[in-house]
């Protein structure tokens, strides 16, 4: 669904059309989910996605349609994730996160193929800014320009962060017999 349509849905939702609000959530929730899985982790992504939509829908009355609604929503999701990480950092470290429901504590809510685990581990190991730029552009599927708008930084910053994230992933994911690989220069 294109940005103009999503923005239109947000504006209609703001004017009290619940069906438009539902469509807006349905059209954007996979991207919000993917972003949050990677910026925080899958165990809390659902909770954070819910918080994102509650914040976004609750503040729709102040949304003026000046920025595309998807970018606006993703920047809210980004703030929700940052708030979560800050809260978690402030809490004393506990040996295991208490599970509040019956979902197993861990990265993924459902069994994951090994491939996916390896990629996710490599992504999780990235530096925060690089991971954010990489996830926004590769997993969420934004252009560099849109990612820059969501992060509030120049396009060139996104470009170099994505490249560095890629380089880190190449190092982490390329086949194990490292001795055979040409040494990374540059």
């Amino acid at each position: 669904m294109d940005d103009a349509r999503i923005t239109e849905l947000a504006l209609r939702a703001r004017d009290g059309h619940r069906d438009a609000a539902g469509e807006f959530v349905a059209a954007t929730q996979q991207q919000v989910w993917r972003l949050l899985v990677h910026l925080a982790d899958a165990a809390v992504a659902e909770e954070l996605a819910q918080e994102t939509y509650e914040r976004a829908l609750g503040s729709l009355r102040r949304y003026r349609g000046e920025a595309p609604a998807r970018n606006w929503l993703l920047s809210i999701a980004r703030r929700v994730a940052a708030d979560h990480l800050r809260r978690r950092a402030r809490r004393p470290v506990s040996p295991a996160e208490p599970a509040e429901d019956d979902r197993p504590v861990g990265r993924a809510p459902r069994p994951d193929p090994a491939e996916s685990v390896a990629v996710r581990d490599a992504l999780d190991a990235l530096d925060g800014d690089r991971r954010e730029a990489f996830v926004l552009t590769q997993v969420v599927g934004l252009s560099y320009e849109e990612a820059a708008a969501v992060c509030g930084c120049p396009i060139g910053t996104i470009r170099s962060r994505v490249a560095r994230a890629r380089a880190d992933l190449v190092d982490a994911l390329s086949e194990p017999p490292a001795a055979e690989r040409p040494p990374r220069s540059g």
Binding site: W33, A49, L57, R110
Partner: peptide, 21 residues
């Protein structure tokens, strides 16, 4: 990276709609 992490998330529409105007 683009294909390996594309597991679908939960459907939140019913959960969050009350927050909408």
């Amino acid at each position: 990276a683009r294909t390996g992490v594309a597991e679908p998330g939960p459907d939140l529409v019913a959960l969050v709609l009350d927050a909408a105007p």
